[in-house]
Write a protein that binds this DNA or RNA. Sequence first.
DNA 1: CTCACATGTTAAG
DNA 2: TTAACCTGTGAGC
Length: 278
Amino acid sequence: MPEGHTLHRLARHLTAAFAGRSVSVTSPQGRFSESAAQLDGDVLVGAEAWGKQLFVELAGDRFIHIHLGLIGKLDLHTYVDQVPPPVGQVRLRLVGESVYADLRGASACDLWTASQRDAVVAAAGPDPLREDGDPGRAWDRIRRSRLPIGALLMDQSVLAGVGNVYRAELLFRAGMHPLRPGNTLRSGQWQALWDDLVPLMTEGVRTGRIDTVRPEHTPEAMGRAPRVDDHGGEVYVYRRHGQPCLVCGRRVSIEALRARNSYWCSRCQPVFRSRAVG
DNA sequence: CTCACATGTTAAG
DNA sequence: TTAACCTGTGAGC
């Protein structure tokens, strides 16, 4: 679940459910107990995301810093009378008047000061989901790097919030091979990637899914049988290795890029040849 | 039942 | 480069 859109969606829901009221903060599992005790009953100011980092602000410039990692989940539920007992390992539980939230499996849940938060935000790349996201900051890194664009897009210090699904899908939509070196891109190509990412991820925040297939390429439009991706969204290449490309029919390729599987279509995303003549 | 793997990151070797 | 961490799910026996 957790690429940047998931965290922004959570920030929005947390703010709507808890902001401006006092919240009960506990750690049924125990690993956040000490911090929870310091926050319990205080006013929750709001929640905000930067890339994959989530910050829940409590009165007094205190921030619960959450990173879901690969498998973490933060689930919001409504309750009527009593809050049900925790199921499984609940690292953090927030309880408001009619809503509670349970955090499980996160790779980070810590109590931070404002300056700790600021330091992490300063080290992160621009976030396409934020109003203040500045693509020029990412471009400064990309244009100087010989690393593949597929690696740069997932480097959170270059660009914040993009994960393995958006990487694969963005590059497919751009017709760009994941191994193309960053310093071979033209500025307009980077701008086009950013301009595609903003509405794509914004839609992800709205729906809670990653859908990247253009209307003209849906199975229906292409006269093929409808299909369902097991990860909730309609995508071109992510985890579709060995299956036919939705556009050209060639088998989708897979290769590990920096310990993460990278997926692409070798016909729609041809290998880049630098300034090849002829 | 066990095992591999997952939309992520960090630290050890 | 590899292992570790945290949890859930689906495939296979």
